[in-house]
Design a protein around this nucleic acid. Structure first.
Lengths: 217, 217
DNA sequence: TAGATTGTTAATCGATTAACAATC
DNA sequence: TAGATTGTTAATCGATTAACAATC
């Protein structure tokens, strides 16, 4: 009874609603209409109402949406009302940067371990968490009920380590390696391919230049 | 005469084609059909042919696509055949991690400067590039013809600094700050909202759990 | 009550997939 | 030439927008 499947596009927009609602709360705004929110966010009011109604009627006719209530509800939908024990695999620059990013913690993402394959790093602490070696990974995942693994290893190691993670029962992988991972259906993989994002930027840059070249000749 | 507008969805897929073609080259594969590539990438062959034909007929009937040729052509489309001088704004953990990421360089993204607002960091070198203060930014952008700014400042500083960048002629901003930026149409903004990506992962995690709860009771 | 604004259905738009003639 | 595979048109599918009755 999983009702209607929610489209990926809708899911991707939810965190942005959540962010704007958080800002409205900081500004002590109590209620907002889909129309006002649409102007702030540069989307259509219709899309906002459609998106929210996938999850239930959070608004009230003639009134709009209660900001705090909607914020909380979207938080629940996103699973931010639960603690998610999380490890980092790859204690390089990016891994350490993510380890040092404190905001995750307050959304329920609790970093409990950092792992690497390089013995030189063993025992070094990042944000009070000491770097462990891969051989202790299986036991650690079980004992700490780790759900999420952040994968910041180089691509040649990533696929192999993803397998280890999956074999040991990890539920989700946040993948920063420049490769696609093979994972069974019940393991969630969310990719952050930074170089691909930069290439998209680069495309738009070249594109804009070409479009405006003729006019200048 | 900018012909037909290419959809954003297509652009987002190009870097992935580029990555797979690069891997095929490493494996010394000379040619590939849309059908074989579609199996590797888990997309439809039809989509591959449609996508590529937005930019021209790169294939040959009865033969398929020449891997190296297609790789080069997609590289050109993405603007990877040009040098893009680039600066980082925000020398925190993430900024330094990106500075240390060497792969950008070989795609034409040349890091020429790192800036911060914290005077303590002034003069410290990251990857041979010393951290500069914001007051020298305008002159630096002009003299080095900087095109791209990587914005890794905290969100309260990001909007303000984006304005400085734009006023001084930056062409594109790769935005890692947890906020949307206001930019005129001719300035490209590519957002990387890491926490939103993690929330999407979290949603899928909760979702999967809910779908399988009933079965276990 | 009258005005405002949602929830929801219907219409439109765009993107993906299927099909096949063209052609190497 | 026969077989393979593209480029491209047509069909389908899904997502976005518009419209409006329901209702606070």
């Amino acid at each position: 009874m999983d009702a209607k499947e929610i489209s990926k596009a809708v899911i991707k927009r939810l965190p942005r609603y959540y962010r704007y609602l958080g800002e409205l709360m900081e500004e002590k705004v109590e209620r907002i209409s889909s129309n006002d929110l649409s102007k702030k966010m540069h989307v259509t009011a219709s899309q906002i109402r459609q998106d929210l109604n996938n999850f239930g009627g959070f608004g009230q006719q003639g009134y709009g949406y209660n900001v705090e209530y909607l914020y909380t509800e979207i938080g629940k939908i996103l699973g931010l009302d639960t603690i998610h024990p999380m490890i980092i695999l790859g204690a390089g620059n990016l891994g350490q940067a993510l380890a040092n990013y404190g905001d995750f913690e307050k959304r329920g993402f609790r970093l409990v371990g950092i792992f690497d394959i390089n013995p030189v790093l063993e025992g070094i602490s990042v944000r009070g968490i000491e770097i462990r070696m891969i051989n202790s990974l299986p036991e650690f995942i079980r004992e700490n009920q780790v759900e999420i693994a952040i994968l910041t290893l180089p691509k040649n190691k990533a696929k192999e380590m993803a397998k280890v993670l999956i074999d040991n029962g990890i539920k989700a992988i946040w993948n920063f390696a420049h490769t696609d991972l093979d994972a069974p259906e019940d393991v969630i993989v969310e990719n952050v391919h930074l170089s691909e994002s930069l290439m998209a930027l680069s495309y738009n840059l070249s594109q804009y230049r070409n479009e405006h070249k003729e006019n200048k000749e």
